[in-house]
């Protein structure tokens, strides 16, 4: 009897694991060039999936007076740390509606972690080095992935059902989305065409005016 129950449990778990699909999202601009740093995510239409924030903070570092990574996707409730690996102080801030905060000038490991408790895009900056910019996209779904340099992102572990596939990018010109259906363990590929605004950033190269608030 005990062996039968164990066998039943293993079979059930295996079946359960297999009953999830993967969506490969490939983001391309109208010319066919892969789009990196896009956050692809799906929202369950029939039964919203609960999100479980990670126990440890997600780190966004500052190195060579830049944020790394440029785009970070997290779920609602995630704490983010901002270790400063530079030898110069930074003043990290956001004035985005989804999360307003600032960590005044510091160097090294900041003791502060910031809780991102509302969904939406958050733009990060350094109040001294104006060219420093990065983005956090806070999601209310556990199903997401970020595109790499090949423009591809794999969203895994999707139970069967209907979803809305959406995509976000810091320079997205118009919202993109479509409905998709996951059937059993079938994997699918979704090619999404996105139009990006020009990549306009603040010039970093020095002039003759020294350091600070440039």
């Amino acid at each position: 009897m005990r062996h039968f129950l164990l066998f039943f449990l293993v079979v059930s778990l295996t079946a359960s694991a297999r009953a999830s699909g993967t969506v490969r999202v490939v983001a391309k601009d109208p010319s066919g060039t892969p789009v990196a740093d896009a956050v692809a995510y799906v929202l369950a239409i029939d039964a919203p999936a609960p999100v479980r924030p990670p126990a440890d903070p997600v780190a966004i570092i500052q190195k060579d007076q830049e944020f790394l990574p440029y785009v970070t996707a997290v779920v609602v409730g995630t704490r983010v740390s901002f270790p400063n690996k530079d030898t110069v102080q930074h003043h990290v801030y956001s004035v985005s509606p989804a999360k307003k905060f600032e960590i005044p000038l510091y160097i090294g490991e900041s003791s502060a972690t910031i809780l991102f408790d509302h969904p939406g895009p958050v733009t990060l900056g350094c109040n001294i080095h104006d060219w420093m910019v990065a983005y956090i996209y806070v999601l209310a779904t556990p199903y997401f992935a970020k595109t790499g340099t090949d423009g591809a992102a794999d969203i895994t572990g999707l139970p069967p059902g209907r979803y809305r596939l959406e995509l976000w990018h810091p320079r997205l010109a118009a919202k993109v989305g479509r409905e998709i259906t996951i059937e059993g363990t079938a994997d699918s590929t979704q090619v999404v065409s996105v139009t990006l605004r020009p990549d306009r950033r603040i010039r970093r190269a020095p002039d003759s005016e020294g350091l600070g608030y440039k």
Partner: peptide, 18 residues
């Protein structure tokens, strides 16, 4: 050549010496 030092003077304030 210029050597610069930065010091945090509190909220949004820097003290720079060159």
């Amino acid at each position: 050549t210029t050597l610069s030092w930065l010091h945090s003077g509190g909220f949004s304030t820097l003290i720079l010496s060159d």
